[in-house]
Amino acid sequence: MVKHNKVDENTVEKLLLRFKNNDIDSFHELYLLLNPLVYAYSLSILKHREDALDNIQDVFITIYEKIDTYEEKYKALNWIFTITRNMAMSKLRKKKITVDIDNEIISTTDKSEEKILLKNLMTKLTEEEQNIILLHLLWGFKYKEIAEILNSNLSTILSKYHRSIKKLKEMEGVI
């Protein structure tokens, strides 16, 4: 299994600042580091692969366009997450109707552990639970930050996070 390093605030901040100083390589590094995170969150909102892929493009184009407005005082990951969320929500509003999950994403023909885990995450957890997992595990946000993002309180987020992780662990390998 391919292992991944935790994304951390400092790395993302350095990349954004380098990019602001016209270092185009750092934009590529940002893309490589963050595109699965942007995709994961976009997919949890939009439920469709193509829409989530479109959102990756729009998010990185926006980062490219808005980099001059980024300042060191902002939290780097939060800056990118806010762009991701705003763009995903605007796409969702355009769709107007409630969206069902893309069958392609959750089809069980691929029985790899990874695919089963993703399917369980997307079908057995509520959207809020999914977001808490993605924000903490993938995006690396602290519980307190997640509570702010999701307009909730720390103890609720903590208990929901642990309950969701427990659910995923219990469902391990169960389709």
Partner: peptide
């Protein structure tokens, strides 16, 4: 869980 999700 993180690694598996990212791989997926």
């Amino acid at each position: 869980i993180r690694d598996k999700l990212l791989n997926a």
